[in-house]
Amino acid sequence: MKPEPKLVRGTPLDEKALKRGKTFSVTYEPRLRYGWDTGQAISRYLAELKEGRLIARSCRKCERVMIPPRMFCERCFRPTDEWVYVKDTGKIFTFSLCYVSWDVRRLKQPEIPAVIEIDGASPGMGILHVVKKIAPGKVRIGMAVRAVWRPKAKRIGSVTDIAYWQPIKN
């Protein structure tokens, strides 16, 4: 038989006590709002997404084609040079099977976030997005995928204008 628990000092609290104001705490709803200027590089990127295209910037010095595009090369510290359209296909560079949603609900079917290396951009250049239409157990690093775009009327100039990426069937 288990021994009786010893009496602990203090005042026992339950949910009822908290609701009735037996304890003191102050709550505050943040009302902060931001509107970030997207700037030259990302404005063009978003405008092209709305048209169903992916665009990158190239650096003549290191010869990289960079996506998402940027007006400066972080390796060479110089302005980038040209706009380059790249394909809306690529390869899974890395992925995860996420069994917990952003608000910490347990998911039966995992979400599949992935970094997709874009065809036409330099190796190691990719975008973070989501893979669907495949059994989670079948996803592999190196797998070829293509973008599935939202219908044109529903695109707003956002990374979510690509609904998801799905495997290219051979």
Binding site: W36, G39, Q40, F72
Partner: peptide, 11 residues
């Protein structure tokens, strides 16, 4: 400065 992102401003 709507024409530049904060990164472009810093650059």
């Amino acid at each position: 400065t709507p024409h530049l992102s904060f990164k472009e401003l810093m650059f």
